[in-house]
Design a protein around this nucleic acid. Sequence first.
DNA 1: GCCGAACCTGAGCAAGCGCTTAGGGGGAGT
DNA 2: ACTCCCCCTAAGCGCTTGCTCAGGTTCGGC
Lengths: 209, 209
Amino acid sequence: MDARTQWDAGRSEEWADVTPDAARRLLTAAVQAFAERGYHATTTRDIAGRAGMSPAALYIHYRTKEELLYRISGIGHRLALGIVSRARDGGGDPAGRLSAAVQDFVRWHAEHHTTARVVQYELGALGEEHHAEIVALRRETDAAVRSIVEDGVAAGEFDVPDVRGTTRAVLSLCIDVARWFREDGKHTPGEVGELYADLALRMVGYAHK
Amino acid sequence: MDARTQWDAGRSEEWADVTPDAARRLLTAAVQAFAERGYHATTTRDIAGRAGMSPAALYIHYRTKEELLYRISGIGHRLALGIVSRARDGGGDPAGRLSAAVQDFVRWHAEHHTTARVVQYELGALGEEHHAEIVALRRETDAAVRSIVEDGVAAGEFDVPDVRGTTRAVLSLCIDVARWFREDGKHTPGEVGELYADLALRMVGYAHK
DNA sequence: GCCGAACCTGAGCAAGCGCTTAGGGGGAGT
DNA sequence: ACTCCCCCTAAGCGCTTGCTCAGGTTCGGC
């Protein structure tokens, strides 16, 4: 057993297919450091140190510090997009699909709030091209949730005067979980997910029961 | 007329009582720079340059770069607290007060999204003591909104299973406006405020009409 | 036993950072 | 006219930053 539990808050299967091992250690070290201090306040020496290597080792696996952020951001955004896509394509009525989307999306943001913090709040530090690529992924996520809301409106289940605005509000609510969630808080990620799924249904005017 | 409109996105009465003039110029320049690049990515040379001064001039009015952030954060948080406090102490039923609180809070975050971005997302860069002081202000804001929600529940107007969690969600929703709002977007600050006030009432289960 | 490839380190470079210091200019008071 | 004080700048100090490079270690295949 290595020192994994020290810096790896929670499971880390999300990085399972990053190879070789040293590259993965550097990546998870970077996630931790970026989440704690922010991208610009993190030094390459800090990242390398957390991974148990010399500063120079970083540049064997990544060309720049920004590439680390780009890789993290890419993996995180694709994971998030996968979560809402699965909910959109899942069976059931719009209310059930929206509920599942919010619940899973929120739970991911809470469980992996370290990663999520970097993914959601540090993308301004990306280079121009990388930034554009990531923004495209975000728009897909947005569209997936919006299509669920649109389905609900079309089916007469939801009462939403402003679909775009309300969809953004729901996503905004979920994303902000990464900012305030603490492990030592009163609620588990699952509980927050349930509460937020209910709040989302209320926001779209779903007349339940 | 100086170059004010260039860096001052929107009105700036919020800094009216910062004197002397040079200190205020530096402060607003810092707000702009921090909002664009983040605290750590902003250099003192950049701030001074935007204010039309040499780097050294900054240290006549502020002891450190961190003090600039502290001042900005203090003014911003006190303003935000004032907004929700006024709504809490205003007349009317809980629904009206919650609606007013959210509407004004959101409008401030949209109108002054530059300031709000710094206030809400850069407080991790504050020193320990300053951070604690600001966190105390945030807790007051939280408590103000929560007391409105509690009033609504006590009056039987609201249906809220988890008061703390729902209150945090409402505030979270409002705060996140500072992250995504753009001036060239489809909605004005007032429109976003109205939409969000309605969403907040839905979240607390207010049976309107 | 030798080779080449993969991986890593120690040392350090150029640039940029927050901040300091010595001194100049100009307006108000006398 | 002189002083005093406030506000400012030019220059630069000490340090840290992202990143580089020459060289060393380890390993499987022959």
